[in-house]
Each structure stands twice: as C-alpha cells, then as structure tokens.
Simulated scan of single mutants.
Amino acid sequence: MRPARDWLRVGGLLLAGLSAGTPGPAMADDVPTPTPSLECRVPGSQLYSVASLAAAKAALEERHILRILAVGGSSAPGASASYPVKLEAALEQAMPHVDVIIDHRGLPGEIASGAAERLRSLVADVEPDLVVWQVGTHDAIARVDPTAFAEALDESVAWLKSHGIDVVLVDPLYTASVATDADYNRIVDGVRDVATREGVPLVRRFEALRYLAGRNEKGEVHILGRQFRLNDLGLRCMAEHVALTISASLARTPAPEPAKAPAGEVASPPASEPAKPPAAVVPPPPGPPDLTGPQRAPG
C-alpha cells in the first residue's frame, strides 16, 4: 500500500495532467494561473489588478514565444540578479509550452522622468511584447514631486502602448519606515492611478510586502536585504507575484480575431484548395444589323 504522501503526489500529477490536457502547442486562450509558494501567498485584493495584455496574447497565439523586457530595480551582481531567472522560471512553469525570453535592464537610482529616453532605445534593441516596469521606489526616496512623477510615468506607458507593447507596472517597495510617509505613499498612489488610467496590470508590491512583513514573525528582515533591497526570498516572492499577475491578465484577455480581408478584396482560398483561374469572358452573340432606309420592312 502506498504511503499517504505518495497518493497525494499521484493525485497532484493526475490533476495537473487533466488541467494541461493533451501535450502540444500552448493555447493562449487557456493560460493557467500559477499558485504562489506558501511563503509568498498574499490575498488577491492586496496583490494585483489585472488588465488586457493583447500584444502578449497575440505573441502566444502566433509564435508561442513571449519576449519580456524587465526594467527598474538593479542589474548589479548579487541577489537582485536572480530576479529575471526566477521570473522566467515562474512563467514557464505556468505556461510550459511557451518559450519565455526575459531581458533584464536595471539601473540603480533611476527615476521615471529619466527613463523615457532609455526606454525608447531599449525597446528598439529588445523588441519586447511586454515590459515589466518596477517603478517609483527611487522617485519616492529622491522626493520627486508626485504630480511630475505621475505625468512622466503616464507619458512613457502611453508611448509603449502606442507602439503595440504591453506594460505591467510594479509599484514601490514597502518598509515600516515609509509606511506612514505621506510623500512616499503619494508615489505609490501615483503608480496605481497611472495603471488605472492607462488600463495596464499592476503588481501591488507595496501592499504585498506589507502583508508578508506583518504575517511573518521575522518581519521585514525576512524579505529585505541591506540598502532597501529585497533579499533572495523577497525577489522570489516578487517574481511569483509578477508571474501571477501576467497569467491572470492573459487568462482574461480575449484571443485576437483572425485578420479580415480589406473591403473590396476577395479573401484568398484555403491552402488545401488550389485557386481556380477566372472564367473566360464570352462576348454576347451579335444582334441583327441596324435597319437602314432600303432594308425597312414594308408597312
């Protein structure tokens, strides 16, 4: 007789097989929603808000490839360098038949107003379907005016959308020292307002970390490293939260409609049926000659 844990494992595999269906190319209209690990679980209302990801959905339908540009945070060696690896792993676990490609470009101390020009060059270089943008923490620390911050962020998000690129925003970090800081919270609110106004998904990192810090006996020390940065666990939780937000948004995004032939044009026949040549134009039979004076019938 199998031990109980083995039956649980077998049951989990059966459920996974039922939900996955027959192995084959991923169907973009059936994107499963991953479950965060126990240490990273946060109520959905405190974790994310979803919105349509049409460009990412189209990439899954057409190429089964999702190319992501992750910006913000730090790309310096150390724990933070593991974030894109963790995010890629979390997304590929949720979408096992999709090739997820993540290009992480971080710049310590960058603020939103200085990111606009760099975003344009990065987009030209990477050609992403989706941009995941950690934004606001450095602006809040630098005491950037909240209105100016929101305007700069709004402009950059609108520019990305106008070029057919989806955006997921990740709002600032949380620590107890900034929990009641009015200026810091205005920046957090600014990210949320831009996400709502532009209709893009939002990872509520501030609320999620506050929840995790309050739930865990070790508090913030358990999820934050030195110099206001997430440690390895905090980065893993953020990667799982971003993956969950992307998956939930994709699951609620309708599949793109097939392209229609422009008005006045005839759609091409299916590949399995060869095109028929146009029918020959047959001139009408000649009519009787026009009657002239001498040919008139007697009347």
Rank of each mutant, 00 (worst) to 15 (best):
A79N: 12
A81C: 04
A81D: 06
S82W: 10
S82Q: 13
Y83G: 03
Y83H: 10
Y83R: 04
P84S: 07
P84Q: 05
L87I: 08
E88L: 09
L91M: 13
E92W: 02
Q93W: 05
Q93T: 12
A94M: 02
P96Q: 07
H97Y: 15
H97C: 12
H97M: 12
H97R: 13
D99P: 08
V100I: 10
V100D: 00
V100Y: 01
I101A: 15
H104W: 13
R105W: 07
R105G: 00
L107M: 15
P108A: 05
P108V: 09
G109S: 14
I111A: 14
S113R: 11
S113G: 11
G114V: 11
A116D: 10
L119I: 04
L119G: 01
R120D: 03
S121K: 07
L122Y: 11
V123E: 02
V123K: 00
A124S: 15
E127H: 12
E127W: 01
P128R: 01
D129F: 01
L130M: 09
W133V: 01
G136E: 02
T137H: 08
H138G: 15
A142I: 10
A142R: 15
R143T: 12
V144W: 05
D145R: 05
D145V: 11
P146F: 09
P146C: 11
A148W: 02
A148M: 07
A148D: 11
A148P: 05
E151G: 11
A152Q: 07
A152F: 08
D154R: 14
E155D: 09
S156E: 01
S156H: 04
S156W: 02
W159Y: 11
L160R: 07
L160P: 06
K161C: 00
K161I: 00
H163P: 06
H163Q: 13
I165A: 02
I165C: 05
L169I: 08
L169G: 06
V170C: 06
P172A: 07
Y174I: 05
Y174P: 03
Y174R: 04
Y174C: 02
V178M: 14
A179I: 10
T180N: 10
D183H: 15
V188S: 06
D189P: 08
R192A: 14
E198F: 04
G199T: 07
L202I: 10
